[in-house]
Amino acid sequence: MGFRVIKTTIATVLAILIAHLLHIANPLSAGLLAILGVDVTRKRSIRTVSSRFLASIVGLAMSSVLFYLFGFHIWVLAVFILVGFPLIARANLKEGIVTCSVVVFRVFGGEDISMTALGTQVVLLTIGLGCATVVNLIYMPNEEDKLTSIRRKVDGLFACIFTHIASQLRSPDYVWSGQELIEASREVGLGLSTAKRALDNQVISPNEAWTIYFYMRKQQLDRIESMLQLISQIYQRMPQGESTAVLFDQLSLDVKQEIYAGTTEQMLKELEMEFKAMELPASREEFEIRSAILQLCRELALYLDISKKSKYPTGRSERSRALRSTGRA
């Protein structure tokens, strides 16, 4: 928010100075239009400035006709609002309604619909919105460091979650609050919104690597929640549970590695072969627990499959290598 205020200040002062140097009547209006034009991302800025400019031109044309036919009366202005605003919104230009109102109200206040007066409003629009667009395009905050920090938090939280899962498999009486799962969900959501904002700032050659990474983590959180439901069914310590815990120990290490090495996946395949070679359960309780552990391994396989299909960024110096490699575990 602080940086946006600085950009707004620069755009406003620049627009007023330009309008003043060109001897445009009421140059402060250019500053007001610049304030309305400053936005949070480059792509959104281009889109909203275009909408504001087109909506203002449409509004000027409609209001000029109404003022010419019926005069400069308050009720005519009310008619313009009742008719013009819905039409502008239907034309997908609703973001420009406020800007349109500024220029139309100026024409109404001046009671002049000559080509000179209308041309002045167009020039003010061009200066104000143009300065806002230039300021937006010149510089936007770099989100790379923030995204890297969020990624590290998410990876660390995932590692903690897998460590807790391993402890629960070894000891069904182990108590875990699940706080890391809540924090991971919050950080992934923050990462997705930040990645979207960073993507909107890339007008040329946009890179979706960060968005893919955080979306991958979001999908994996769904798989982890399914795992926890299955673990709640494992109420007795079993040798198969201990073997599966080793997988999650390894996964807590793999999740922090720079590339997907497939270590946990290979161990999972070997464990599944061992399960197939084991004798059948001797009791109903053993059957239920082993069934839950087997289903847990299948959920783990789905989790790892998401990692294989996704890619992620590893930072400025390793961006190109990351895009050629598969994602983290």
Rank of each mutant, 00 (worst) to 15 (best):
R52N: 10
L199C: 12
V102A: 00
L199V: 13
V102S: 00
R237A: 15
G2E: 13
F85S: 03
S291P: 00
L294W: 06
L21R: 11
S243H: 07
P239L: 14
D145A: 15
G241V: 06
F108L: 02
E286A: 12
C131N: 06
G191V: 09
I150K: 00
S291N: 08
R321V: 08
H73I: 06
I88N: 04
R52L: 08
Y215D: 07
E144N: 12
K146H: 06
I24F: 12
G189I: 11
E286V: 10
Y139N: 12
M1E: 15
A301K: 15
G130P: 03
V135N: 00
G59D: 01
M216P: 02
K256Y: 06
P141V: 06
D39A: 12
E279A: 15
A292L: 03
D112K: 05
D200N: 15
R197Y: 05
I224W: 04
L228R: 11
R90Q: 13
Y215N: 09
G59F: 01
E187C: 11
R284F: 10
N92F: 14
V13L: 15
G189C: 11
L300T: 02
D222G: 15
Q229I: 14
M115P: 05
T120Y: 09
V188A: 07
T314E: 15
R44I: 12
E111P: 01
L22C: 08
L271R: 10
G119D: 13
I212C: 09
Q250R: 07
N201S: 06
L54C: 07
R284Y: 14
S63P: 01
Q121T: 04
S226F: 05
T211L: 09
W75F: 13
E288Q: 12
S29W: 08
L302S: 15
G71T: 07
R4A: 14
T120H: 11
C131F: 06
I24H: 08
I150C: 01
A15S: 04
T148A: 15
I165P: 02
F275S: 04
S320D: 15
L125H: 00
Y139C: 11
S171K: 12
E95M: 03
V255C: 07
T116K: 13
G178L: 09
S317R: 10
D200R: 14
L87F: 08
T133P: 05
G84S: 09
N136K: 14
R217P: 03
F72D: 01
M216L: 08
P281C: 10
V123R: 00
E288W: 08
F72Q: 02
G178H: 07
Q266C: 08
G315A: 06
